[in-house]
Design a protein around this nucleic acid. Structure first.
Lengths: 141, 141
DNA sequence: ATCTTTGCAAAAGTTTTGCATATCC
DNA sequence: GGATATGCAAAACTTTTGCAAAGAT
């Protein structure tokens, strides 16, 4: 929901800078439709002729996490992926080509969460739900 | 559903050995109620006075994965966790103390899966659903 | 001037690989 | 003997940390 411009403006107001890397990282994550790993981001930045050290990227992502702008996502792979926080959704992961797509549910899981809270002593604050299978391309290939 | 004894018997029939480590790993995973990481397993084995190299553990878990006996689980942490495959369930993860508990849903997500398949070109084969929050101990502490 | 941002090198943590040895059937 | 299983050391891969330099306000 929050646009890239609004995010950057808020950061600026808070005294942080809107550097080339920061702007590009936020844009890439906001435009993606899928969560991105550090190697993903580095490659996408390279296309834009932006060279950046991996340390800087990890630090930038940690910073954006602290600011509540991004969250991390762990699918069935080593790397952590990152996406813009806030609009709740899930992921479709192709187990053949590793493509990841965002997906939303018509009916969310609030009912199930309440049921679990009734049944256990857990207080649930969030959940992650990922679907695995074959994407359109891989299922016909 | 499949008992430890049955798993071991099948492995033996297939020409594999039921070593101390293999037996203990399967028992630990089968009895757990929560997925275990390699350090978890190593610690639990130590209690049973079983000393084992981490390489052996990783190799054993990879082997059990190949055999379809275990699957890996990635929660919001670096390490991979492992659990017995087959009985579908979800996890409650305490964000304060990192405790992990298995949990089952009354109503599974088949309906949602069908809806996504109608809406996208994805063929879904499985999903993972994890709940995060505070466990009974941490919410009062 | 000061705080933010960046790069580089090194370290840390997890998982994998190569190779040699031991063990079971 | 031949396949299976294990240990050790080293490598690979992802992420973090320390320190110094550069850049912006």
């Amino acid at each position: 929901m929050t646009s890239t411009a609004a995010i950057l403006k808020n950061l600026k107001t808070a005294g942080f800078r809107t550097t080339t890397v920061r702007t590009a990282v936020i844009e890439l994550l906001a435009s993606g439709g899928s969560p991105k790993s550090v190697p993903d981001l580095n490659a996408a930045l390279a296309v834009r002729k932006i060279t950046v050290n991996k340390t800087t990227l990890y630090r930038e992502l940690e910073f954006l996490k602290q600011q509540g702008i991004v969250t991390d996502v762990r699918l069935n792979e080593r790397q952590t992926r990152y996406e813009i926080a806030g609009d709740h959704h899930h992921h479709l992961v192709c187990t053949s080509c590793d493509r990841v797509e965002d997906v939303e549910l018509d009916r969310e899981l609030d009912e199930q969460e309440r049921m679990i809270e009734r049944r256990t002593r857990f207080k649930i604050t969030r959940h992650t739900l990922e679907f695995f299978g074959l994407c359109g391309t891989c299922r016909t290939a």
